[in-house]
Amino acid sequence: MPTIALLILSNLFMTTAWYWHLKGGPAVAASRPLLTVIAISWGLALFEYCLAVPANRIGFASGWSAGQLKIAQEAIALIIFGAFMVTVLGEPLHWRHFAAFGCIMAAVGFLFVGK
């Protein structure tokens, strides 16, 4: 469970690092200086790494394979991104998002079946 908790926290930071600067629409995003956006995003990503690396080490030491760690991270990333997209960026979810999420969850199932 620490692996999942750390992956959730790390994904909160990484999603924010990658997408915070898009809030407000294309014109607002374009008005933000790119080097400033990169510097702020790197600062946020530092916290992501401080959480993701221990999450992967703990998960691996607990018997998870690298593939299982990666696919779990992707599933968590999609959930967090979906929430971020709706709440922060104001974009709606469509059936395509749910279909893609279903495919990722099927991949999670394939990697964890029999484990």
Rank of each mutant, 00 (worst) to 15 (best):
W18M: 14
F112L: 01
F101H: 07
M1K: 09
A66C: 00
L9A: 15
A106L: 14
A61Y: 03
F81E: 01
N11E: 07
F60N: 12
V113Q: 06
G102M: 12
A106K: 04
W64D: 06
W64E: 08
I8L: 15
P33W: 08
T3G: 04
I4R: 10
F81P: 05
M14V: 14
A66S: 00
A61N: 04
G24M: 04
E48K: 07
I40E: 03
A30W: 00
W20P: 05
A30V: 07
E48G: 08
M85G: 00
G90S: 13
C50R: 09
L111T: 03
R57K: 15
A39W: 04
G59I: 11
G63M: 03
M85D: 01
Q73G: 15
L111M: 09
I58S: 06
H21E: 13
I71R: 04
L51Y: 02
L51D: 03
E48H: 14
A99V: 14
G67V: 00
H21C: 12
I71L: 03
I80T: 06
W95D: 12
F13H: 01
A30T: 06
G82I: 01
A55G: 01
L6V: 05
P92D: 13
Q68T: 01
Y19R: 06
R96E: 14
F110N: 06
M14L: 12
R57M: 14
G43T: 09
P33Q: 10
L89Q: 01
L22V: 05
M105L: 15
P26I: 05
L93M: 15
A27T: 12
F98I: 12
A45V: 08
A61G: 10
A61F: 09
F60L: 09
V53C: 03
K23G: 07
A30P: 02
V113A: 13
I80V: 15
I38P: 00
F101Q: 05
E48S: 11
G114P: 05
I40N: 01
I76L: 14
A39I: 00
R96L: 10
I8G: 04
G114L: 07
P54G: 00
S31F: 05
A5Y: 11
W64S: 02
A66T: 02
H97W: 15
L69I: 10
A107D: 06
C103Y: 09
S10T: 04
E48M: 06
A45W: 08
G63D: 11
Q68D: 00
W42C: 08
T15W: 00
V37D: 01
G25V: 08
F60G: 01
A107Q: 05
F81A: 13
A29T: 04
G43E: 07
T87A: 13
P2E: 10
V113G: 02
V113I: 14
A61K: 07
R96T: 07
P2L: 09
I8F: 15
L93K: 13
L7T: 11
P92A: 15
A55M: 02
H97V: 13
A55D: 06
T15I: 15
L44E: 03
E74T: 15
V108D: 02
S31C: 04
A77V: 11
T3Q: 07
P92G: 15
G67T: 00
A66L: 10
A106M: 12
F110D: 01
